[in-house]
């Protein structure tokens, strides 16, 4: 499903040169649920951005779903993100002045094919928010916003769900609901990668990859 070969990401140049990811290789199979953990500055976010095709490695190769992403241009990467990757953000990142339903529909703005009628409503229902469809983000609680965010991430039937500290801005109860939802989705076969520094979140993944200073220091089978 996912394969990183000797991936290095360098920001800046000269004296300001920072190596965020240093020669990382790893592979993740379809249907896995993986936690990427490590202290801040360890390169977690950078690796997530490369996995999400939001950024390209300086060196090395990233293969997603059997296809190398190296030679893809910006438009092709956008298309790839739209079709294959769902993003869940720490800050929810719902579009402002846009209702819950419109947010869930948003990925179809950038898809070649139009959204099937009733699909977004069904997806909102799936995360238990059918009754909130016409509410704006600022009228929803954090937990509700994150569930709208998950519905949005799933609307295009992605092969990979990438979550960056998905429970970081939530109370324990709401965070638990989000993680339960992830577990359910994973059980249905969705590949999920969660970046977190929260040991409890990481503990719910099948395995975790630990980063430090841009290198993998520990990759194990996890606690599950």
């Amino acid at each position: 499903m996912i394969e990183m070969k000797n991936v290095t990401k360098v920001f800046g140049s000269g004296e300001k040169r920072v190596v965020a990811i240093d020669n990382v290789s790893c592979s993740i199979d379809a249907g896995e649920s993986v936690a990427v953990v490590g202290p801040s500055g360890s390169g977690k976010t950078t690796i997530l951005q490369i996995l999400g095709c939001l950024d390209k490695p300086t060196e090395g190769q990233y293969v997603l779903d059997g296809a190398s992403t190296e030679r893809l241009n910006d438009d092709q990467l956008s298309l790839l993100r739209n079709a294959k990757i769902g993003f869940v953000f720490q800050g929810f990142n719902l579009l402002p002045r846009t209702t819950a339903l419109e947010n869930v529909q948003a990925p179809f703005l950038y898809a070649k094919n139009p959204i099937a009628s009733g699909r977004a409503e069904a997806m909102l229902d799936r995360v238990g928010l059918a009754h909130r469809r016409d509410h704006f983000p600022n009228e929803l609680s954090g937990g509700e916003q994150q569930r709208v965010g998950i519905a949005r991430a799933l609307i295009r039937d992605p092969q990979l769900l990438l979550a960056d500290e998905p429970t970081g801005n939530l109370d324990a109860a709401s965070g638990g609901e989000v993680l339960d939802l992830f577990k359910e989705l994973n059980a249905q076969g969705l590949t999920i990668i969660v970046v977190t520094h929260d040991k409890n979140v990481a503990a719910r993944a099948q395995r975790s990859i630990e980063l430090s200073d841009g290198r993998i220091v520990n990759a194990n089978g996890g606690n599950s």
Binding site: S78, L79, R81, N82, F87, L95
Partner: peptide, 9 residues
Amino acid sequence: TRRALGATK
């Protein structure tokens, strides 16, 4: 966010 959802430049 829009770029992540698939918006091109």
